[in-house]
Every structure is written in C-alpha cells, then in structure tokens.
C-alpha cells in the first residue's frame, strides 16, 4: 500500500522530522514472539507539523488511563518500533521506571522534547515509548548507536532536565542486542 506523503499544511509549524504514532496491546492468548508483535502493533497516524501533532495527540487516550499491557510508540517516519529495524539494530534505549500516576505527564514532556529537537544528538533519536504495565509504567527513548557514549550521556542528561526527574529516579540503558538475547524489553 502506498501512503500519501504527509506534509505540513498552510500556516502550520513544520517539524524537523515526520513522526508516526503506533499502538500495541498484548493479546494474552498469543505467545510474545516477533510475529505476534508485528501483528499486534497498529499504526495510528503520521504527523509533519506541530499542529498536526496536537490534533492527533488530543484524540488519543492518555497513557495513564490505559489498562492492561499496552504501549504507545512515536517513531520517526520510516523507522519501525522494532529491535530488528535497520535504524535500531545497533541501538539501545534509556529506560525510566515510573510509579503509577506519572505516565501521562512524563509521556507528554518526552514527546515535546523529541519533537522540538531538544536532545541535540544529530540523527540519533529514533523514537519514544510509554509502556503501561501492571505495577509500574515505563518510559523509554531509543537511539541508533548504543556504543556512542557521548550521545547516550547527552540523551540521559537532557532527559533529566526536560522531565525534571526526581533525584532518586533510576535510569538504565539497555542495548536492543541484549533485549533480543534475553527476549525482554526491560
């Protein structure tokens, strides 16, 4: 299927990149293998401007109001939110565990930082994910090159600033290669 190219409308503020929204919900009956992941992940839409972002975002359920095992992903257009994607295969992510009740606010702030190009790491950012789980929620930001320490440190420091994280917040970095090996995201 050939999709229509998304571009900013008249009078809108263009984004540095187009971004695609994805939604994933685990169906309990299926095993958590790659195939069922690809089958269960759904594209919601793509935005090219600040105004298009708000239009789409405002229609979505806030992550803190979701129930069950589900994820929202916002990735640069053309990058699938999968470890195996060309842009992700040498990459990794910062993981921030959040106690229940914080996901919606932190999710919005991490999105605004990404869309506004606050990370200053060139082309390195791939996307952001909020994962709703039973006891806690998890925010992650994916970048292209896991072994580029200058980049990963800068992302960590920017996250601390833009999210205004409590000082005791634990941040972990995990390479997608390790996620593939232990078949686990976190």
């Amino acid at each position: 299927v050939r999709r229509k190219a998304i571009s900013p409308g008249a009078g809108e503020h263009p984004l540095q990149y187009n971004y695609t929204f994805w939604y994933f919900r685990r169906t309990p009956s299926r095993p958590a293998n790659t195939q069922s992941y690809e089958q269960n992940i759904r594209q919601i839409g793509t935005v090219a401007s600040v105004e298009q972002f708000w239009k789409l975002y405002s229609h979505l359920v806030r992550p803190g109001d979701l129930i069950g095992h589900s994820d929202f992903h916002i990735f640069k257009e053309g990058i699938k939110p999968m470890w195996e994607d060309e842009a992700n295969k040498n990459g990794g992510k910062w993981i921030i565990r959040l106690r229940k009740g914080l996901a919606s606010r932190f999710w919005e702030n991490i999105i605004l930082a990404m869309l506004g190009e606050q990370f200053m790491v060139g082309e390195e950012i791939c996307g952001v994910v909020v994962s709703i789980r039973f006891q806690e929620d998890i925010l992650s930001i994916w970048n292209k090159t896991a072994n580029d320490q200058v980049t990963t440190s800068r992302i960590r420091d920017t996250l601390r600033r833009v999210l205004n994280l409590p000082p005791n917040t634990i941040m972990e970095y995990k390479t997608h290669n390790d996620s593939l090996k232990d078949n686990s995201s976190f």
Partner: peptide, 21 residues
C-alpha cells in the same frame, strides 16, 4: 543544515491554535 527547534512553552501554545483542532 538548519534544525527546527521548539521549546516546550512554544509547543504548548500551538495547542490552542485553530489549526491544531
């Protein structure tokens, strides 16, 4: 090239634009 950078405050202001509805 030039990067299109927006701060949080500006992005939040755009939310109330008629174009964002």
């Amino acid at each position: 090239g030039t990067r299109i950078i927006y701060d949080r405050k500006f992005l939040l202001e755009c939310r109330s634009s008629p174009l964002a509805r």
